[in-house]
Structures are given as C-alpha cells and as structure tokens.
Design a protein around this nucleic acid. Structure first.
Lengths: 190, 190
DNA sequence: CTCGTTATGGACTGATTGGTCCATAACCTG
DNA sequence: CAGGTTATGGACCAATCAGTCCATAACGAG
C-alpha cells in the first residue's frame, strides 16, 4: 500500500547501539547515528521518533540481548563456572573499543535524572540479580557455596562486580585480568 | 604589579569537578561551568586554557583527593575493616546525585581514546591498586587473609569492585546495599 | 496505468556549542 | 598619583546541534 523501508529496522537499531555504546548519548550526534546506521536523516526521525526515543529503544534491546547472553552462560556447567562465565560474557576487550555497555554507560551518564532510563535499567538489574541469585541457590543446594548466603544479596554483589568488570574492560583491562578479578571475588561465595 | 584574580583557583576547580561529575565532559557546557564555578567566561579561558585543560586539571585533582580519602580509610583498623572502609569511602549516595566519580566517568566516556586521560587514569589506578595491595599483604601477614593470595591481583580486584560500587551508587543504590556487596566480595580474600 | 500512501534525501531552521575580541576595571610598583 | 599589567564581562564568531520542511521516489491496491 505504500513504499517499503529500504533498511532493516533491527539492523539499524543494532548499529545505533554500537554508536551509542561508543560515544554515549549526548556525545553521539544525529549525524554520527545517521552515518553509523546507514540511513537518511528523515528515515531516522520517521522510523524512531527522535534521538531520545531511539536511545531508549536501543537501551531496551541492548539489555535484552545482554540478559540473553548471560542466561546462556548461566545455563551450563557448575554454578561456579556458570557464574564466572556470566560475569565475563560480552564484556568486550581492550582491542575492540567499539564495545561499551549501554547499561553502565547510561547509569554513569544520567544517574537518576531520567525516569524512563531509570525504569529500563531498574528492570534489567532486577532480572540480572534474579538470574544470578537462582544460580547461587543452586550452588548452595549443591554444597558448593556457603549455606548462610542470602542469594539475593549475592546476586546484587555479582551485578555490582559485573559493572566493575565492564568499567575495567572499557578502561583497557585484558581478559586475563578480568577473569582473575572475577574469580577472586567469586571466592566470597564459598 | 597587576590586577589580582577575584576568585580562588582551588575553589573554582572544586566547583568544576562537581559540574563535570554531574554531567560528564561532553554534556557539561562551558556555560554550565561558568555558572557552576561562579566566574566569567574570559576568566575561565584565561586561567585554565580551555574546557579540555580544565577537565584534565579537574580529573587530576579529583584523583588526588580520592586517593587521599582512600589512604586515610586504609590507615585505620584491621586490614579487613580498612579495606571495607576504603571501598566505600566517598561513593556518594542516592540522595546526593551531585556526586559522581570523575575517574569512572571519564573511563566510560572516553574509553581509551584520549592519551592524556589514559595517563591520568592509569597512574591513579596504579596507586590505588598498590594501596590496596599493601593492606592485603598486611592481612596475609596477620593471618586474616589467605596466604596463597597475590596481593597485586587482589588489589586489582578491589579496584574493579570499587568501580562497580561507584556505578551502583550512581544508579541509586543505598549505603546498606553497597556495604553488603563489598563485604560479600571481601570474603574472597580469606 | 493511476492513485493514495509512505520512504527518502537535501535544504533549511533556530538554538547552542566552544572559543575569541576588545574595551574597561583593578591592582602593584615606582 | 601615574603607568604597566593582568582580570573581567559582554558582544561576538563560525561550527555544530537536534529537528523540520518539502519535493520526489517507490511501492501496493484498485
């Protein structure tokens, strides 16, 4: 009934995620986005509303994808191995500086000033904590972790640790350092 | 011999630190800085060069002050108490959103793209890791920590953990949650 | 093939950006 | 009090910002 889009919406958002992850929200100009997404200016505004809407959609999709990766990592192996893998999955390394975390990035950039960003990040944090906590519970049941542990609190610690690992990765830390730090902190669950 | 400055340089930089910590580098406009620092536009450029120079000076001073606070916290109590205190000192809480960490903020915003920012953050990280590591060594000597521990690696883990705590604090976490997370991860040193 | 509808790209907007210019003010030394 | 020097503030600059307008292009339905 009308002219179809020349670009794939999912791919465009994936590209927007990369642009936002690299530059942050404010520093990513609409021209950066247009160039990075490979679409025209009017298409961007027509399909996504405005820069803010595009960012919120990118953040939501990034969080969904990140959670999926973590759940995948959490599904296999012993509780300890699974949690270690989930802590390290998708961090990016010092080589690929394109990789940055939209979640951590938006928290650092916006703090608590934007209600919609808050809602997305709070929801994502809840899911990640719950996923960690479930695996901690498994570990307790299997006798690998301290039975006195509060799984929810342990889940929050692991989310905090993962945030720190993301900052370290963005700051140039190598995979070995990150793994070593993760393992050291993980010992606290025993 | 000439007209003296009407403002105190140290106070002005302290104010600039607050502005940059709240908004980040890019999003802090020169007008924000002028207003926040309480000085005129020409005074800013005359005294600090430009926005970038001002930021670098603010970052250096912030890191110095932050390290001083941590060293103070590290000086007292048992190794475990001291390290816990150092992990939590100066994080700011959910109430005071003005508090943000210039170090973490600049790492997240710039990644490794700016050589001078890299140099400042690398130097600061080295000092923090060393300070933590020294206290870990004390703890090992005192029998409180695992003698098989690599103090340097433990120091890096603690810096990573502190980055995560800063992100969590900026995201709205309360003091209790932060302390609980710190304690849980600290158990990994035993 | 024609018409209604939507997508596209380029020109354009007012606002804001970081930074400069310049006239004037305030100080210290002589 | 006079002269050299630096600080100050307001006007100003080109560049860039996010976002809009409009003429045109590309499609499916009739």
């Amino acid at each position: 009934m009308a002219r179809p889009s020349e670009f794939d919406r999912d791919e465009a958002i994936a590209s927007a995620i990369r642009v936002f992850a690299r530059h942050g929200y404010e520093a990513a100009s609409t021209s950066d986005l247009i160039e990075g997404m490979g679409i025209g200016r009017q298409s961007l505004y027509g399909a996504f509303g405005d820069k803010r809407r595009l960012f919120l959609e990118a953040l939501r999709r990034y969080s969904d994808g990140s959670l999926a990766l973590m759940n995948e990592a959490l599904a296999g192996g012993s509780p300890r191995e699974a949690i270690e893998a989930a802590l390290l999955v998708g961090l990016g390394d010092a080589e690929d500086l394109e990789t940055g975390c939209l979640g951590v990035g938006s928290i650092v950039e916006f703090s608590r000033t934007d209600a919609e960003v808050n809602a997305l990040n709070d929801a994502a944090a809840t899911l990640v904590v719950a996923a960690f906590a479930a695996r901690v519970k498994d570990g307790i049941a299997a006798g690998a972790f301290d039975p006195g542990l509060d799984p929810q609190a342990a889940g929050r610690m692991l989310l905090t640790l993962r945030s720190g690992l993301k900052v370290a990765a963005r700051g140039g830390a190598g995979e070995d350092e990150l793994r070593q730090a993760a393992r050291l902190a993980l010992r606290g669950l025993s």
